[in-house]
Write a protein that binds this DNA or RNA. Structure first.
Lengths: 197, 197
DNA sequence: CCAATATTGTACCAATTAGTACAAAAAGTA
DNA sequence: TACTTTTTGTACTAATTGGTACAATATTGG
């Protein structure tokens, strides 16, 4: 148990790779781009990621789940009013000042960018989990009485995933934030009881 | 004005290229893939598309607009009840038996796949046009009295574009068609007057 | 049937790619 | 100090890439 110590920080390097994947897309990110951003050489890279780019992406997915999504999940699971938290979150998503930016959803992008079936499925199942997180939060809200819609949490959770999927792309096309706010208001009003289908 | 005649059908070759772009994604489609599918050699290809893959994609976009979208636009502009046509169309989109399949939206995919700014913007503006087509159809429906929602056609049109963007991705993740139908029903009910926001 | 023109297939090139091999380096340990 | 272990950087390979050059081919018009 000795050996030359790593000169780089594994998590920081991984985060840099994630940035590249997110910004350029999976297929556009060459090994060279990734190595450069990660600040390591080929020797270190293929030692740490014997599977090359696919393995790096797999680890990136896990890191995005653990790092970027974990906080959001915790809020959904613990906040007093999940419905309000969800609404706030979506409006944050279209705020031009928000750090979320114009990069889209890491997993949604991946599903539409990656040809490799294994990686594509992995990204798709993460998206599905986001839907499940919405659903679970809504179930809790239903019990607590803050979800007043008569629709089932399952259907509403999928609706929110669909809204999530849509808005990430739509906001790249429609720059009028006021209009985006209007459609969010409409879509989120489906969680309220006053809206009868 | 003479010369050796073309051995291939330009439109058929272009359609084949579109298939490749649609199925594999822009970045995954190599020049080799495209030539093979188009059934032509390099000589013919670089004679017809001096700009290479970008030019081919540009022509593909125009062809998809003219060929795939035109029919839909005509219906929207001429049918007696645009609201009903729109609803039918969305349900067709999630029908497993539909030829639309799992390839997603040609333009939406492109926006998320292509790094080249010019091509990306071209795809984005086509998406925007789809939203405008919805809006225009809804304006007509409003005048005809078949659009009963009190929301403006502009906002509802953008909502439909957003639904379009979302459902193309969501149906790749959620295979339960019944659930998909439920969220379509909900989202499309926003066009009806009985739904008050 | 010859000239002009446009298309085709192939051979070729230069650049970039992912990935491997391996020796040098930097630590711990005895 | 010498040995072991792990990481690092570089040099290298093999394959694929997009794109060009060009001679051969197939047509129309004079």
């Amino acid at each position: 148990m000795a050996g030359r110590p790593k000169i780089y920080d594994e998590e920081k390097a991984l985060d840099s790779a994630i940035e590249v994947f997110w910004k350029k897309g999976y297929e556009n990110a060459s090994a060279g781009d990734l190595l450069k951003a990660m600040g390591i050489g080929k020797g270190s890279f293929y030692l740490a990621y014997k599977g090359g780019k696919p393995e790096l992406f797999e680890k990136s997915v896990k890191r995005v789940v653990d790092h970027h999504l974990r906080g959001f999940w915790d809020i959904l699971e613990n906040c007093p009013d999940p419905v309000q938290a969800i609404k706030d979150f979506f409006f944050l998503l279209i705020d031009p000042a928000s750090p979320v930016g114009q990069r889209g959803c890491f997993f949604g992008n991946a599903v539409l960018q990656i040809e490799d079936k294994t990686l594509k499925k992995m990204a798709a199942s993460q998206l599905h989990l986001i839907g499940k997180a919405f659903t679970d939060a809504l179930k809790r809200a239903k019990k607590a009485g803050t979800l007043t819609s008569s629709q089932s949490p399952e259907v509403l959770g999928l609706h929110l995933l669909n809204l999530w999927n849509g808005i990430h792309l739509t906001k790249m096309v429609e720059k009028d934030t006021a209009k985006l706010r209007e459609i969010l208001k409409m879509n989120l009003s489906l969680l309220d009881s006053k809206v009868k289908i």
